[in-house]
Design a binder for these strands. Structure first.
Lengths: 343, 343
DNA sequence: GTGAAAGCGCTAACAA
DNA sequence: TTGTTAGCGCTTTCAC
């Protein structure tokens, strides 16, 4: 059906291997035959069969990307598209293809990863998330298959390469921003502590408070998944404390956004009554009311770095495990404001 | 390196072809040898090399998904993740892998698509967007390669299969909702008219107005990309019209969201002074202030249907071109309200 | 029921 | 500089 290397060879009056050599630009081929072969390829509309090539060179020039195994709502988070865009941009540049696995749960993900690896469909893998005792990571580690993780591993940190932000410092920085504005009672809202990212951000928040010798109490810390009614109540509860917060560090822009709107409904408005910060600097956070002060974690770059790392690892299995920290930046907008002197 | 069909054959004391037969469950194999072979596979940890298989059967069990060639900001739109999730869920179920192409521009996309097709990396392709005179579609059409488009083709509508919403009716429905609430001066805001979706939504809006014998004037129609300062001005201009709008049909949730916040800044609040509707029913639109009345276009299902169609087309090249319309649903929330009697 | 053999399209020693 | 040859791992007639 399709035109093969043999057809080209015949047309150009050379052997198939010569054609192959021309393609790979390997060994010295006379300029004459080279031209002749290239002409034949063009005339016949030849395109190499990547499958056949992969089979013999035992490499696919493809990388598998494993999307997080998550609930539908979280998947709408722009974080993943943005990450993917970063990965894709470098992959394209490096001449790699992208295989995608969108598992519904860990089990499914694991199955798809095994299929990719065992089936020789990819040379390396990028994990866009991990969970505690992740079977996917286990598998990849024992199979000694090249992979990199985006985010912090929950175990064996030194044995695998991963790219992450310094979330502790980032959170410390944004908390300090609030402290600098005169706030003393600062709450923290984040999703489940199981997520490593949330843990780090909570940690940084606490550190900043401690360093400033400000009160830190578990009452000021709320864990929230999706702002359902129970969770809304927990947030509102903060304002019945003896010293209600005048500021909040929130671990995600979208969450911040939800909290701002929710509080507005009960007459607490941002930034007049409360300063609120986010994380991620999504495109959205410039459109919110008020525009959100947040931490830009450079999601795109996270993807680029991850892509770079897998490719390195694929090209040289002996590449050591490394940790890449993508720098962050505080973006000041109008959701935070200097604390008015209390009456 | 890896264990092959030959190793299994040796271990089970059969020929390689028998092993193959067992795998494919083809031709009658005695239960005895079947068991023996399966045992050997398990013991050796055998996994078929998908590449090798693809080479001989001339099919990859993989589908390429082409992400839109777009600016970074738009890519953060949850629409695409959500679509991808729909596609992925069906593909996984059907045992297909997903190849992803994230082109930076049309040129790059085209290159990646050619690579996929010529390189025999995929059996079919899903396009998540198309542009006017799309070279990717041209290529796919003349190559007679199985593909389906999400959204409406700008040309050759009857020759290709695509899945879409009935955006005209959807827009008509949501406009009627506003009319039913007593609004008479209704504006339309959408992105560039080049996008087929926007065109359809504009069309539906006009139809509804006409049917209700309400005034329709180009002054009430604003095209907006990303709410930059010029665009904000254009929106504000609407309120210096002799009859300023009391309601707006906006072609996208995120845009609605931006407009609501922008208007709030200039003292026009939703829904008190203006009723606003969106499109898409993103997860976000429940968290906005006010919660957004919008059209749920069932993005996930759009993805599922597209996936179904390519697979059908791959399995049977003679499958006719079809059009799948995913139903929509108006979701009433609090961004729209009955028009107060004018003073 | 099972196996021998040919071949998918390509690469890579090694010869010439 | 070019061609010969032997696979890569798998499927699939077709004969036994």
């Amino acid at each position: 059906m399709a035109v093969t290397i043999k057809d080209v060879a015949k047309k150009a009056n050379v052997s198939p291997s010569t054609v192959s050599h021309v393609i790979a630009d390997r060994s010295r081929i006379s300029l004459d035959t080279k031209k002749r072969v290239q002409k034949a390829m063009k005339q016949l509309g030849y395109h190499p069969n990547i499958n056949a090539r992969s089979l013999v060179v035992r490499a696919t020039q493809a990388i598998g990307v494993v999307m997080p195994t998550i609930t539908e709502t979280i998947f709408q988070h722009p974080f993943f598209s943005e990450l993917l865009r970063g990965v894709g941009s470098l992959m394209h540049q490096a001449g790699y293809s992208l295989y995608l696995s969108i598992g519904g749960d860990v089990q499914q993900s694991c199955k798809e990863v095994k299929r990719m690896v065992y089936g020789h469909q990819v040379d390396g893998i990028i994990l866009l998330s991990s969970c505690e005792a992740d079977p996917v990571i286990d598998f990849l580690m024992t199979a000694n298959f090249p992979f990199v993780l985006v985010g912090k591993p929950s175990i064996d940190e030194c044995k695998m390469t991963y790219v992450d932000n310094d979330n502790i410092t980032a959170s410390k920085d944004i908390t300090n921003h609030l402290i600098d504005l005169g706030h003393q009672y600062i709450a923290f809202i984040g999703s489940s502590i199981d997520i490593a990212v949330t843990g780090d951000r909570l940690h940084g928040y606490k550190q900043a408070l401690k360093l400033a010798t400000l009160p830190t109490s578990p009452e000021y810390i709320v864990h929230v998944e999706c702002l359902n009614s129970g969770e809304r109540k927990a947030v509102k509860q903060l304002f019945s404390l003896r010293n209600p917060p005048t500021a909040m560090v929130i671990a995600d822009d979208i969450l911040s956004f939800g909290v701002i709107n929710m509080l507005d409904e009960i007459g607490i408005s941002c930034p007049e009554n409360i300063s609120i910060t986010g994380f991620n600097n999504l495109y959205l956070s410039e459109m919110t009311r008020p525009r959100l002060t947040t931490v830009d974690i450079h999601i795109f770059n996270l993807g680029v770095q991850a892509a770079k790392c897998v490719i390195e690892k694929v090209k040289d299995q002996d590449e050591p495990a490394k940790r890449i920290i993508v720098p962050h930046k505080i973006i000041c907008r109008s959701s935070t404001k200097r604390l008015d002197k209390r009456v």
